[in-house]
């Protein structure tokens, strides 16, 4: 690890003011960043510790929830309001990593964690366009079982590894951001960029911008939600495919639905077309299968991950069927 300066931010303004250049990084609990620094992927000259900024989970005026970016993943998953009104979020978090990591990891850090593509992590021995633009991608013709099938590009097929973000995407979460030029709000689904030919640019955050909170809007559908994660080990493993979904049925028709996917894309993936096709439909196998087909219609696979579209389709159908069954 290259030597760096360490400073603890006393406030959001203090944190933002401490960022002078691209060599400065915000430090959450370090569950991803510290590892990336050891691997030589991240080489910051200065870390600004933001773990002692707001970690409050509080109701908003609109009836939603505002979660401080420094809240631990555990705190969010255990929060009574989250469990009752946003169960998919609690389940998504609980399915991720281990209890120890969830106790440490912050909400802001979870959102900004980077891909676990093993070629991305091998600084000396592998090529990676995300790590070094223009270098080439060893995953395209290499081991890509864990890699993405939606939103990928010829430059990069890495996935965003978060579980939490998949549920946040389904719930229209809004990311609160503070920067030198003031504050702004960005929908979570618009925070991460698709790789295109610039896979090293992962979010829309500008230099020095800090995620301060995540806001969950108040929506009745979120209470009827769940999260299902499919993986190679029963626990403590990244998703091959995950689905966060919510379903609201009124008078025998689907009144509202949310479908977001994890493990298949460079960002938390909201399947809006699939959702649109379900609105007004009679909940059931045929509608769910059609929606799942639509969700994966744009899939581009490599030999190692060719199974993912089918796995994702099946998982979507199963999750929606469960929700439909539970709602009756």
């Amino acid at each position: 690890m290259t030597p760096f300066d360490y400073a603890r931010a006393r406030s959001e303004q203090d944190a933002v003011a401490r960022v002078k250049d691209a060599g400065t990084k915000y430090l959450g609990a370090g569950t991803n960043l510290v590892d990336l620094m050891r691997e030589g992927v991240e080489v910051p000259s200065r870390l600004v510790d933001v773990t002692r900024l707001s970690s409050r989970i509080e109701p908003t005026d609109g009836g939603g929830l505002l979660i401080g970016a420094a809240a631990s993943n555990t705190a969010v998953a255990e929060d009574a309001a989250v469990r009752a009104r946003y169960p998919a979020l609690a389940r998504a978090i609980l399915s991720g990593a281990s209890a120890q990591i969830r106790n440490m990891a912050t909400v802001g850090g979870n959102i900004l964690q980077r891909t676990r593509c093993t070629y991305f992590l091998d600084v000396e021995g592998a090529r990676c366009n995300k790590r070094q633009p223009g270098q080439g991608c060893d995953a395209l013709e290499g081991f890509n079982r864990g890699h993405g099938v939606l939103g990928v590009s010829p430059a990069c097929i890495a996935t965003h590894p978060s579980d939490m973000c998949v549920a946040l995407a389904a719930f229209d979460a809004v990311v609160h951001i503070a920067g030198a030029n003031g504050r702004r709000h960005v929908p979570l689904v618009d925070l991460h960029r698709l790789p295109g030919d610039t896979p090293h640019l992962e979010t829309v955050l500008e230099l020095g911008e800090l995620i301060t909170a995540v806001e969950l809007p108040s929506q009745t559908i979120t209470a009827r939600s769940t999260y299902r994660k499919v993986r190679d080990r029963a626990s403590y493993a990244f998703a091959l495919v995950s689905v966060a979904a919510a379903l609201e049925v009124a008078e025998g028709r689907i009144a509202d639905v949310r479908i977001a996917l994890g493990g298949v894309a460079p960002k938390p993936w909201r399947a809006r077309e699939a959702e649109a096709t379900l609105i007004g439909a009679v909940p059931g196998q045929s509608a769910f299968v059609a929606a799942a087909e639509l969700a994966l219609a744009g899939a581009r696979t490599r030999p190692g991950n060719a199974f993912k579209p089918e796995l994702a389709r099946r998982t979507i159908v199963a999750v929606l069927s469960d929700l439909a069954g539970a709602g009756q």
Binding site: T118, Y119, D122, G125, A126, D138, E141, G142, F143
Partner: peptide, 9 residues
């Protein structure tokens, strides 16, 4: 990784 002879994981 048979291209490089390097262990990828």
């Amino acid at each position: 990784d048979e291209r490089s002879g390097r262990i990828a994981n």
